[in-house]
């Protein structure tokens, strides 16, 4: 079982970037037609998703899309109505204890015992897992940067500090899968950056697979190797983020800032004018050629810019402006 969960980043990076989803090894998490119904309301519907090892995998969706419900099912807090979730090959339904041992998680807010110190909280949770030494606790505290305050009661902690303590309890037992629900909530920019770097390092050095949910698109763009997008309980897209950036050789929308955009449009016989910019779909050489033509025809070209669709644009495009279901 150990070997299957071991990360092989390189392999995945390649297959993923090409957009070919090939199963080269067993995924860490496998959601098979997961459905959650509460009375007549369907919160999550038929979600099938494989999360490959050694990635930071984003789980993106507007509020109320079913992110937290899915995460609750993944850690066994909520029963699965239909389908199954397998973690490292063990079903969370039938072999809960064998499956959950590979998981560290924060579900929603990082709630701790407020009357205990940070250290006592960690020791309490460490007792519930086997093989966590005092040294490991100290090491984790160091990692999340709480060394100075770990002996203070948790009620004196800020949200950001509790978030760090939450991460600390989640990684104590070196889980193969780390599940974080909206981990950047309440963190300052410095903290977000540290968390991001830290997650990447975990992923790289320990081969941990990180599953992060968020509605903060820009954050996900920086943090994740791939994202799954969920809306109204349905999985609507799974994509590699490396793929988005790597689309340089194909044609992209290019914006020319110049003095007479309408006339330039006539000259080129194509493109659109938007916000005083001429937008033409071109490849690399096309951009250079077009620029030369425009300059030779007496236009003043002030700037050339690729119109990249950020994840946010794509996300909004896909999810539309639907009401929370």
């Amino acid at each position: 079982m150990m070997g299957i969960c071991k990360a092989n980043m390189l392999q995945w990076g390649e297959t993923w970037a090409e957009g070919v989803i090939e199963m080269q090894q067993e995924p860490v998490v496998r959601l098979e037609g997961v459905t959650k119904k509460v009375s007549s309301k369907t919160l999550v519907e038929d979600v099938t998703l494989d999360i490959p090892p050694g990635q930071v995998f984003g789980f993106l969706g507007p509020n109320g899309a079913g992110k937290t419900t899915t995460i609750r099912m993944m850690v066994g807090l909520t029963k699965i109505t239909k389908g199954d979730i397998k973690i490292c090959g063990y079903s969370i339904k039938d072999h809960f204890e064998q499956a959950i041992v590979h998981v560290g998680a924060i579900v929603e807010n990082p709630e701790m015992y407020k009357f205990l110190t940070g250290y006592e909280n960690l020791r309490h949770f460490a007792r519930m897992m086997s093989g966590i030494t005092e040294e490991r606790i100290r090491e984790v505290v160091q990692l999340v940067g709480l060394s100075n305050r770990i002996q203070d009661p948790v009620r004196t902690y800020s949200l950001g500090m509790r978030q760090r303590l939450g991460v600390a309890q989640a990684i104590l037992h070196r889980p193969k899968l780390l599940i974080l629900d909206e981990p950047t909530n309440g963190l300052d920019p410095q903290g977000i950056r540290e968390l991001r770097d830290y997650l990447r390092r975990l992923c790289r050095e320990e081969g941990t697979t990180v599953f992060v949910s968020s509605h903060l698109l820009s954050e996900m763009e920086l943090m994740c190797d791939a994202v799954a997008i969920i809306q109204n309980g349905r999985l609507i897209d799974v994509r590699s983020l490396a793929g988005v950036e790597g689309a340089q050789e194909t044609t992209v929308d290019t914006a020319f800032a110049l003095d007479r955009p309408e006339q330039a449009q006539e000259l080129l016989g194509g493109g659109t004018v938007r916000d005083g910019l001429l937008i033409v779909r071109l490849d690399r050489n096309g951009i250079a050629d077009t620029n030369a033509r425009l300059v030779q025809s007496g236009f003043k070209v002030y700037g050339i810019q690729k119109v990249t669709r950020s994840l946010e644009d794509q996300f909004l495009e896909m999810t539309g402006s639907d009401q929370i279901g």
Partner: peptide
Amino acid sequence: SWGTIKLLLIRPWS
């Protein structure tokens, strides 16, 4: 009410 039940129930114990 503290929310810590979630942390207890995701440990490898039934």
